[in-house]
């Protein structure tokens, strides 16, 4: 095993463990912290895949903005483990079974499929900002502009929904 593989396995264990922590912890704030750690593990995977831009944007957007919003809302409502609603164990079991079944079915499908792709360890520069910028503003400029309209409408929507006195 070389060092990249060791890092891969550490990050994988961290990602899956923290993702389980998100789902299983009773306190919503702990869930948020676990999700932030999951995002860090995924950012580490991006770095291993030579996607530096994605790694840092993942941290800025998810860990730096989205999760702060989640934490903000949870603190605003002052949720903690005591107020946390729990489903009956039967429903929880059904959730685990259906999730696990999907996992098994797709794993079976993947191992039947003859995938021969190998991710080599040599560094490429497709993840560099210069390359990504060229692709984004030449090939995908229309989707980019449309997503900006989406952002604007989401912003206006959030403001309209969040307004205090509607009636």
């Amino acid at each position: 095993m070389d060092i990249l593989q060791i890092i891969f396995w550490i990050l994988t264990v961290m990602a899956i463990g923290c993702a389980l922590g998100v789902v299983l912890s009773r306190n919503p704030v702990n869930s948020v912290i676990f999700l932030i750690l999951t995002f860090f593990a995924i950012s580490g995977h991006y770095l291993l895949l030579n996607a530096q831009f994605l790694a840092i944007v993942n941290i800025i957007v998810y860990a730096g903005a989205i999760m702060v919003l989640f934490l903000f809302v949870i603190m605003l409502m002052n949720l903690n483990a005591d107020t946390e609603p729990q489903k009956s164990w039967l429903v929880q079991l059904a959730g685990v079974v259906s999730g696990g079944t999907l996992f098994l079915v797709i794993i079976a499908a993947i191992s039947k499929a003859n995938l021969l792709g190998v991710i080599n360890t040599e560094t490429t520069n497709i993840g560099l900002i210069k390359v990504l910028g060229q692709v984004l503003f030449k090939q995908y400029v229309l989707p980019f502009e449309i997503s900006s309209v989406l952002f604007l409408s989401a912003m206006i929507g959030a403001i309209v929904i969040g307004k205090k006195d509607m009636e």
Partner: peptide
Amino acid sequence: LALFCIGIMGALMRRN
């Protein structure tokens, strides 16, 4: 896939 299925489980199991 594991992360995706954990997400599905979370969406089905939790009420919050």
